[in-house]
Design a protein around this nucleic acid. Structure first.
Length: 584
DNA sequence: GCCGTTTTCGGCCCGACTGTTTTCAGTCG
């Protein structure tokens, strides 16, 4: 069996399927065929295993949305490096045509029409034609479109898919706005909906659903908030604002008896709602944001709560984090809904930094802050000997740090302080402290901080080697990704999960809000493989210990229950589960 | 192109808005 090309990552394959969808759409394919490619792209992107490998194994059709035809295309891609249909379509339509379809108001149908009738094949040619007022000669296009298209191109639309911002940054901006709406005398209930409510990694914009005694007063108050750069009224009971840092916020005020319908609709996800509605149709029910219509009676039920919406469809209430059409619509009753972990379940935090490396506080300060948060143990895990940036902890310094931890543990009541390290995994998979020094520690988390650009095979070997080390208890931020900033390094995450399961090493969900690494799909695969997770703050100061809410959000999206997370246990119980523990 | 408590064919979520059009297709979320 020939090797799988190293650059054939799931992300790359998903891109190719998306491109095929775009091209088939331009080619005039029926909408459902196009949709099939988009669905397949999402399934590939979400797959926890290498789709190229699944293709080689002949099991790729087990993924939802991948059938015989797409399997054939995947086989061609894996075997030859290309998909014949994609090559053919690329030869038919200039790449600029796809950029044109990204413009607001210009979809594939209309872009194709301009290409066929005016031979417009790029944003530049489109702008020129609009400038020359030639677009209005085509049926369906008029002067308003010429103005709009020039504005859109000037604003940079069409250059790329619209950018998303990490959820934590959106919430930093939106938090005060939501607080202001909640505090307003005219407001009753104020809910954040959309991907923010689902605790997604990133958001495009923010949806707020509210009920109010005086909708107009609330919307006017919203529009007048100093956080907004501009605001408008797209409808009677809605407002849209754009914050100074470019976040778009939609507010809808609804009647209390429809709050459940609207909240459900605007929480999404799109895939969840589409699948939910398709299932409802089979029962003779039609779901929209305004209610649920019954074919048999013609009556529309309005729902004040989401519980009613789901109950009418024969489903238990589904936690927003699960609403991704990843199996949650198979629930038949409350008993099927996993008891998802909450931040209150965490009893300890096993990854944080102090002034010994790049943290801002002392051991004692961190311990007191953790105790105030209700934690019963923490591990001090400063960076190791070769970390660089002036923050390295030499072996001798680590010995002194262990002593300081023992002293602090004795001095601070009500919390156990553990001596640990975040040791670097060097490019060859070895660690940058000696084994006898690591053996003195209570807790060792190993992480990759250098040489991110190894190829997948080398990176996987590097990490698996570290997981096999007898003193390594957990793998820190396992893929190195930063949300909307830096992709994961090339690594076979299935092999990492397998090695973690085999060696009894925990995998971390790092809660730094720009990391949230492992991400949800991989975390779900890890617990399915029997791996225990740890959810850590990676705090660099006392005020950052609460960041574990982000890691918990990721864990909930991964269907994780408290027992699947090691640090929901007491330190005594957890210690006994560590690799190499005497009674393990 | 996928899929099955309408199972191997014939379906595939729903409604609002837009610019253009005299009744609507395409786009968007």
């Amino acid at each position: 069996m020939a090797d799988i090309p190293p650059d054939l990552t799931n992300a790359r394959i998903a891109e190719l399927f998306d491109e095929l969808g775009d091209l088939y759409e331009l080619d005039g394919a029926v909408v459902h065929r196009v949709l099939a490619y988009r669905n397949a792209a999402k399934a590939v992107r979400d797959a926890s295993r290498s789709v190229a490998t699944l293709t080689r194994e002949g099991t790729v059709t087990s993924l939802p949305g991948i059938g015989k035809t797409l399997e054939e295309k995947l086989k061609a891609l894996v075997d030859t490096g290309s998909i014949p249909a994609l090559d053919r379509l690329r030869g038919t339509f200039p790449p600029g045509l796809i950029a044109m379809t990204r413009l607001p108001g210009l979809g594939p149908k209309r872009a194709r029409k301009l290409y066929d009738e005016l031979q417009i094949d790029s944003l530049e040619a489109l702008a020129q034609a609009a400038q020359d007022e030639r677009l209005r000669g085509v049926k369906g296009f008029g002067p308003k479109f010429e103005v709009a298209v020039l504005e859109a191109i000037a604003a940079g639309h069409g250059d790329e898919r619209s950018r998303r911002i990490p959820l934590y940054r959106a919430m930093e901006t939106a938090g005060p706005i939501v607080e202001a709406l909640r505090a307003h005398p005219a407001s009753d209930e104020v809910h954040i909906a959309g991907s923010a409510r689902r605790m997604a990694d990133s958001v495009k914009d923010l949806d707020i659903i509210a009920t109010a005694s005086d909708p107009r007063a609330l919307l006017d108050a919203f529009a007048a908030l100093p956080e907004l750069e501009s605001a408008g009224n797209p409808g009677d009971n809605a407002a849209r604002g754009i914050t100074h840092n470019g976040l778009s916020i939609d507010v809808r005020v609804v009647e209390p008896d429809q709050l459940g319908n609207l909240l459900q609709h605007f929480t999404g996800s799109k895939n969840h709602n589409t699948a939910l509605r398709a299932a409802a149709v089979r029962k003779g029910l039609h779901v929209s944001e305004y209610g649920i219509t019954d074919d048999a009676t013609g009556q529309t039920h309005r729902c004040a709560t989401e519980e009613e919406v789901y109950a009418l469809l024969g489903l238990p209430w589904i936690p927003p984090e699960l609403r991704e059409d990843r199996g949650e619509l198979q629930f038949t009753g409350e008993a099927d809904v996993p008891q998802l972990i909450t931040q209150a379940d965490l009893k300890g935090d096993l990854h944080m930094h102090t002034i010994a490396s790049d943290g801002r506080a002392t051991i004692t300060e961190m311990a007191i802050a953790a105790r105030e948060r209700g934690l019963s143990y923490i591990a001090i895990t400063d960076h190791s000997a070769s970390h660089g940036f002036g923050n390295d902890v030499s072996p001798d310094e680590l010995r002194r740090q262990i002593q300081r931890v023992r002293e602090a543990d004795a001095a601070v009541e009500g919390i156990t302080i553990l001596a640990g390290t975040e040791v670097n995994i060097l490019p060859n998979g070895s660690l940058d402290y000696a084994d006898d020094l690591l053996a003195e520690l209570d807790w060792v988390v190993a992480s990759v901080h250098t040489a991110f650009n190894l190829d997948e095979r080398a990176m996987t070997q590097r990490i698996v080697h570290a997981l096999e080390h007898p003193h390594v208890h957990a793998l820190g931020h396992p893929t190195g990704r930063k949300i909307e900033q830096r992709p994961a390094y090339a690594v076979d995450i299935d092999a990492v999960i397998e090695a973690a399961a085999r060696t009894g090493t925990f995998l971390e969900i790092n809660s730094a809000p720009d990391r949230r690494d492992l991400h949800d799909v991989h975390a779900r695969a890890a617990v399915a493989a029997g791996v225990l997770l740890v959810i850590d703050s990676d705090a660099h100061g006392p005020e950052k210990l609460g960041l574990t809410s982000w890691g918990v959000g990721t864990a909930r999206r991964a269907w994780v229950t408290p027992t699947q997370v090691a640090n929901t246990r007491s330190w005594e119980e957890l210690a006994a589960l560590r690799k190499g523990a005497p009674d393990r």
